[in-house]
Design a protein around this nucleic acid. Sequence first.
DNA 1: ATGGTCGTGGGACGA
Length: 259
Amino acid sequence: MKIATFNINGIKARIQALSDWIDEANPDVALLQEIKSVDEAFPREHFEDKGYAVETHGQKSFNGVAILSRLPLEDVTRGLPGDDTDHQARWIEATVVGEKAIRICGLYLPNGNPAPGPKYDYKLAWMDRLKIRAQTLLKAEEPALMAGDYNVIPQAEDAARPEAWETDALYRPETRNAFRRLTNLGFTDAFRARIQGPGHYSFWDYQRNARDRNDGIRIDHLLLTPQAADLLTACGIDSATRDREKPSDHVPVWIELDA
DNA sequence: ATGGTCGTGGGACGA
């Protein structure tokens, strides 16, 4: 089973680029972030015609997550638990039923800039809530994953110029510590389980010719429970997607599971 | 320190 995460930066502007990537990459499941659309405006028929089930959790203009799946989706839930006052659309879950059932969580973690400040406080509080949900997932002792745009550069090797990010909400020590506390619960960063070393990125800013200079960062991650990590057979980043017409500033990251 | 580029929606704001 091929499962991908892709921050598309707006479904309206990205419908062609997303469709082209789906036709080539053929993911069984695609977790999308920043659909920037309400549920009613998401072009669900376009992807249903390609054979995908479509579940969205959107809002007007900003944020928004979705799941596309060739396999049936069950028990879909929307919103990260833990704060009834938080109405930002950043979390969606479903169970994908293939040979094995896998609980799949798609997330768009808050950017948090400028830091320090209220937006950074919101990011760290969101990560605290994520940790609680993660602990519950682990307790089930079943194959599960949390994938999406984490807006976290885990280590220096995950940035072309780490020194440029030192005060940024994506790389500040509190951010990396919170991410490490999360993974230390027992999750596997699928990419680092398969591929070592610097130079692997999932985001390049639109500004300053960042892509041409390969001035990127790795902030899109798939974290696996031990039971899911046992099924991992491959992982990759579709970097070439960044060089197409009207690209997102992120590219897809994918895994293959023996499921 | 500033400005550089996108998407959404039709003006700023978020990234």
